[in-house]
Simulated assay, not measured.
Amino acid sequence: MTTTTPGELTAPAEPAPPKAPPPATVRRHWSEHGLVFTLPFLVVYGLFLVWPLLSGIRMSLTNADIAGTRSDYIGFDNYAEALTDPDVWSSLWNTLWFTLLSTVPLVVVGLVLALLAHHLRVVAWLWRLSWFAPFLLPSGVVCLLWLWVIYPSDFGFADQLLAEFGLHPGIGWLTDTRYAMLSVVLTTIWWTVGFNFLLYLAALQSIPQHLYEAAELDGAGAWHRLRHITLPQLRSTTGVVLVLQLLASLKIFDQVYIMTGGGPDESTRPILQYVYQSGFTGYRIGYASAISYIFFALIVIVSLIQLRITRRRREENAL
């Protein structure tokens, strides 16, 4: 022990040397990469999407049947046959025709209903519920309801209504090639327009109110506010609605299968119903798989084109 006399100065203590940094970790724990949280999803994704996708591609290159008695490799023969099959092209045209007939009304009607609901102040909840409720119904229930409405006889509500006004009843809503597809389109619009209506209504409620107040101060009328404020603000929502509606319409199956069965004269049979008939009625699973992937390629092309158009519009608006 050292002592110091009064007046003697003590030297300051030397600082402790810095601690050496910990050695670099060579192996990180899985939780630091998030693999613990994403692994269940990746397993389910691989089992129920990636594996069936690869298995279907393999099956499309064979002559596999539904019984599994044969699965010989035949290369691209199924694809070559599908491209020359007139039934493939006719069912594909029916699918595209349904998409053209249904997409535009579903977008426009959904927007109009949302505009009305947004400005409605009396029983607004009832208006919203009445248009969104059908979207919650299963496809079988919707089709049975509309079969009762447009059944082509005195039993159908539509024919009874026409008879009350002295008009010619007995229209073949589902048995005439002129009206069958239109009947399916009308059913689809009533059933699914509620989803587009809800998206537009949410987008309308997010538009800043001060834009309309400034326009009113400048003397802009209702039409000018709609044209120069509302519609431009809904442009991104319209792009989303259009993409979703195109994909949903291209995958039409339930309504046609229940209401018309693809008739009359296969005038309403979509491509997915022909895939079903080829695989489960014609027992040609390999051929049905090839048709499915041709249709899948078409959907991918449509989606890419639509996304490219949407991205170009966003870039032009940014400039």
Rank of each mutant, 00 (worst) to 15 (best):
E8F: 08
L113R: 02
P17E: 14
L147G: 11
F280S: 05
P23V: 15
L174R: 06
G263R: 02
P12G: 04
L244I: 10
E315Y: 11
Y276E: 07
W30Q: 07
L250D: 01
F132L: 07
L92N: 08
T10A: 15
R70A: 13
P169N: 03
D72A: 10
P232S: 03
Y45T: 01
A220S: 14
R178V: 09
T177E: 09
E216L: 15
L304F: 05
L83R: 05
D265E: 13
L244V: 01
G194I: 03
L129E: 13
F41I: 10
P152C: 03
P18Q: 03
I285Y: 08
T187K: 03
G279C: 00
G56V: 06
L182D: 07
L115Y: 04
E266Q: 13
E164T: 13
Y151A: 15
L96C: 08
G221N: 09
A24M: 12
S206E: 15
L101T: 00
T38W: 11
P15K: 03
A11E: 11
T281Y: 14
G262T: 01
R312E: 13
H168T: 12
V104K: 06
T268F: 03
Y257F: 13
V243W: 10
P18N: 09
R28E: 14
L234D: 00
L226H: 10
V43C: 06
V36H: 12
D176Q: 07
V107I: 13
Q273P: 05
Y200N: 02
N196F: 02
T237K: 08
A203R: 06
I66N: 07
P134G: 02
T237N: 07
R70T: 13
S71H: 09
Y283L: 12
C143F: 06
P138C: 06
A24R: 15
V26I: 14
F195D: 07
T177I: 10
T177S: 11
T187E: 09
L39V: 12
W131I: 14
A11K: 06
R227Q: 09
L211F: 04
L39P: 09
S90M: 05
A67E: 14
P134C: 05
S91P: 02
A222C: 08
V302G: 10
F76M: 12
G156Y: 02
T177R: 11
V108M: 07
V107R: 08
T3W: 12
A290Y: 01
N94R: 00
R70L: 01
F280A: 06
V122C: 12
D154R: 14
A214Q: 08
I305W: 00
W127Q: 13
L100P: 10
